[in-house]
Amino acid sequence: MWEYTDKVKEHFLNPRNVGVIEDADGVGEVGSLSCGDALTLYFKLDADGRITDAKFQTFGCASAIASSSALTEMMIGKTLEEAEKITNDDIASFLGELPKEKMHCSVMGQEALEKAIACYRGETVPKPEGNIICECFGITDRQIEATVRDHHLVTIDDVTGHLKAGGGCGKCHEDIQAIIDQVQGKPMPIRSEAAPLTNLQKIRLIEETLEREIKPALHQDGGGIELVDVDGNRVMVKLRGTCAGCKASQVTLKKTVEAKLRELVSKDLVVEEVRS
């Protein structure tokens, strides 16, 4: 049996906002019967572009229904710009926690929201780029790579929990493992100092270094880091989680973050902490 939080159980047993909005401003449909879960999300906007109503219909397990219910509660009252910032992690935290095998239920919520907003704006959500790795669920290498990086996933089961990839026939397990290995272990190429970086290149490289080299290390200790701004050679960051307020954080900042950025981006960089 799954260990669902009380909040998941409560939203499953008493889901909010079940139904259809006939004259919806945006509709997003994701999933299918064969996948085992599907969600149709509707929303209605007022004159100021704020979401006044949201409804859903879900075919799926308890956590899929609870995630959908949670999502509608989170959306209502927000502007589209605010709503589109809702991530699957936000949905999971709203519910307390989801078993890792069930993270894909929250991902389904986020995808339906993206689609519904794109529908309102008359856009289409671009098809995921890359080559299909998991044929059972149509998941590409790029999607897996991004998810592994964003959520610091380390096992195939983690990937299956988030994306469903690898949860069907299992033929793609080796490919998924290869992507995990690549994201986790691939050393960054050492850049020659000969060609100076443009500002844009520098910022991108800083971001990439933070993502690949620094975040995973901090994440292991329950911390995190966020890039706020880059001004010339000043790199401004915000510390998160256990790093924020940690007495050793200044040491971390200089010895780990700055040293790594100097090694891989530019030896002139200076890292500063921004406190909010």
């Binding site: 799954w2 159980k9 499953f12 047993l13 019967l33 085992g36 879960d37 075919f59 799926g60 397990c61 308890a62 899929a64 229904i65």
Partner: peptide
Amino acid sequence: EYVEGEAILLLMNE
């Protein structure tokens, strides 16, 4: 048809 087993079981559990 058209419903998911886990959700059924958890409602039966109630």
